[in-house]
Every structure is written in C-alpha cells, then in structure tokens.
Design a protein around this nucleic acid. Structure first.
Lengths: 198, 198
DNA sequence: GAAGATTCTTGCCAAATGGCAACTAATCGC
DNA sequence: GCGATTAGTTGCCATTTGGCAAGAATCTTC
C-alpha cells in the first residue's frame, strides 16, 4: 500500500489535472486529507446516513448501490483508483442517503469531511473550480450513460463497459454488473454466451 | 409576456431559494441577465456549437435532444418555467455540444453568457453556491431518472412522468415523450391504450 | 376548406428480456 | 480438504418492446 505522502502527491496530480492551479494550493489542500482504509465488504456509506466523506480512492474498487422495493440491490456506479467517491445528493443536501457505497476489494484512499471541504472552498476560492470540475465530470458521464441506456441494447452496453472499464470485471460479480447494466444476471449470462459463440 | 424587471425579480426569488444569500447580491446578479425570446421551433443551442448561454426560463417549454447514429432524435430532457437551461458538458468544458436545445413553444427568459457567469463567480464568491446548487439538483434528478430507467417498466416511467411533469404532455408530441422514456412511439401508444382500458 | 404534412394508432410478427427452477462451478470458512 | 454458501448457466415459457406498414386523426398552409 502507498504511504500517506504518496497518496497526497497522487491527489495533487489529480487536482491540478482537473483544474490548473498553483502547486502550493493543491498541496495545502492535500495536506488536509486523512487516510481511509477499508476491508472488502466494508461500507463507506450506508443507506439512511449522511454522506460526509469526500474520498479520493488510490487503491481498490468500490460500488454504489440502492435497494429497490422488491429488496434487490441495484448497482448505480463503480469506482476505481484515482476517482473521487461520495454520494452527491446526500453530501451536498445534507440529507440521508438512499444509496450505499461498499468496498468490492480492500481499498485505500484519503478523504476530507464535508465541513473541511467547505472550509477549503471558503479559504481558497480557486479550489472551488476543482469541486465544480468533479461535479461536471460526473454529470457528463451520467448523461452519456443515460443516453446509451435508452438507445442501445443490453449487449452493446455490456461490450462498451467491457471496453471502458475492464478492471471491474475482475473485481465485481456478474450479478452486480448485470444490475448496473439494467438487466438480470440471467440475461447477462445469455448475452455473454451469445458473444462467446461469435 | 412578463416585463424584464418582472423576470429579474423571479430570478432573484429563484436564486435565494436555491441558496440563501443577501437580496442585494441576488439583485446585482439578476441585473446582468438580458432578455431572450424564442419562437416555437427556435434553437437555443445547436449540435456542434458551444453552449454559451445560461438561460433562466420564465415562460414556455423546451427540450434537449441528441441525434443517434440511425438519424433518430432522442429527447434527453424537458425544460419548463423557473428552470435553468444550458448544456452542462459543452458549457463548462467549452467543447462543441452533442445536443440540441429547442423551443417546444414560444419561450421567454433571461440569460447570461459563460464569461459573465464566471465574472460573477469571481466577484461574488458566495454566488458560486448557487451555481453548485443548480448542478447538484440536475445531477440528483438525473440519478433518480437513471435508477428508474433501469429498474422500472416503461409503463411505470410513463405514469411517473405524467404525475411529476404533466405540463409536458400539453406541449410535446408523444413521439418526443416516447424517446425521452426510452421507448418507441408505437410502444408508448400501446401503453397508453392499455392504461386507458383499466 | 382542401391538399398535404405530421402525429398517433393498430395489426402482425420478431427480437429482447424476465421469472423461475434446476443444475454446475467456484469460493469461503473452518 | 470438505461441507456449505454463493455465483453463474441453462431450459422453458411469459412478457415487454420493437419494426414495419397501413390507416385514422390532427394540424398546417395557402
């Protein structure tokens, strides 16, 4: 596992790539992040509580999921290294989350709390641009996922996920991936069989 | 049609509800918005150009849509009075939009440009909180739409849209609503027939 | 108000996906 | 390593949705 200072240095890179700012500013920000370690299956966030950590993941994979009325869990997102992980609605509105965030593998990262993040936004106004860029990126990704969900077949979406996010297939069970794609595990199994036969 | 000053006053209300801030600040912001009028069918944004207006719609209805490879247009969103209309990816990344935004009815609103918005963010740091709240709201809505798209039947999504956004049915053709729901106009027609028979 | 365009509906059949249950394969805990 | 649990596959059939084309209804436009 990387040392805390290595993790902070990764974060500085990440911040300055997302929005160019003085290195000193990015470093000051990174200093405020504290280490977070999660075992496989551990929760970063549980349904009903308020998302209060803004986590920069450096190692491992996580997923977000919601329970639907029938009691099935629906994967709403996957998260990997070099990504910011939190539940936006709960975090910014300060309301209980309807989603869970759970480690698929052992995870390492560094985080800050909601109040520290706001303090940073306040003392370093330029840093808000980073916050905005994370929001915009997430929003854009979700928009394109939405479009592909309503226009493409499950097979096409599966192939696209395989191409853009191959790592996930090594860490998440297919049942989980199926729900992310909006289909049942049975259907995904058949789609894979169909593809394999080609 | 409302006067410009009425529109600005609506915007002040909207801003202070989205994020509490001094009335003076909200008024100063609203002063910078200029009127925009669109006839039915007019475009606020055309695919390939950069979304450069941050529009607060006061009257009328619009839709966003993307062309899919087969040449069909897919509605990605509907917009009504008291909503902010722009294409986030293009606007903030300053890249050509893959979406169009078009007036479904005659529309009135007030707008600012990208550069004026940034200028306001710079001179009134607190106003950024409003910008953030608009992003978070849009993101949250899209997340819940995404979840319902992958978990619910087309009929359930139709009924939900009918309940949460009934106005749209008076202004948008069903074909347009069908693509928003991720189904064909044929299927929507059958779903409506099915519901009517109950 | 008549011709033309657009929108909506319907019939027919095909394709995609789901539900359930049985079965097999892989993994976990001890 | 072994029993128990979890994950993945498959068969059978039902349901949902799509594709296409024709027809009906509605709306533009002159």
């Amino acid at each position: 596992m990387n040392s805390l200072s290595q993790e902070r240095s990764e974060l500085v890179d990440f911040i300055t790539k997302a929005y160019p700012m003085p290195l000193k500013m990015a470093s000051d920000v990174a200093e405020r992040f504290y280490p977070v370690r999660l075992g496989k299956g551990d929760f970063l966030l549980k349904e009903g509580s308020i998302s209060n950590e803004y986590l920069f993941l450096t190692e491992g994979y996580m997923r977000s999921f919601a329970m639907n009325p029938d009691g099935n869990d629906i994967t709403t997102g996957f998260h990997g290294p070099q990504q910011v992980v939190f539940e936006i609605t709960s975090f910014f509105h300060r309301i209980p989350s309807r989603e869970n965030i759970q480690a698929l593998t052992p995870c390492a990262g560094i985080a800050i709390t909601y109040s520290t993040l706001n303090e940073l936004f306040h003392t370093l106004p330029e840093f808000r641009e980073f916050g905005r860029s994370i929001l915009v990126r997430g929003f854009s990704n979700l928009k394109s996922r939405m479009l592909s969900t309503i226009t493409e077949t499950a097979e096409a979406r599966y192939l696209q996920l395989l191409q853009t996010n191959p790592d996930i297939f090594q860490h998440a069970p297919l049942r989980t991936i199926a729900s992310y794609l909006g289909i049942t595990d049975t259907s995904l199994s058949r789609i894979r069989k169909e593809i394999a036969g080609k």
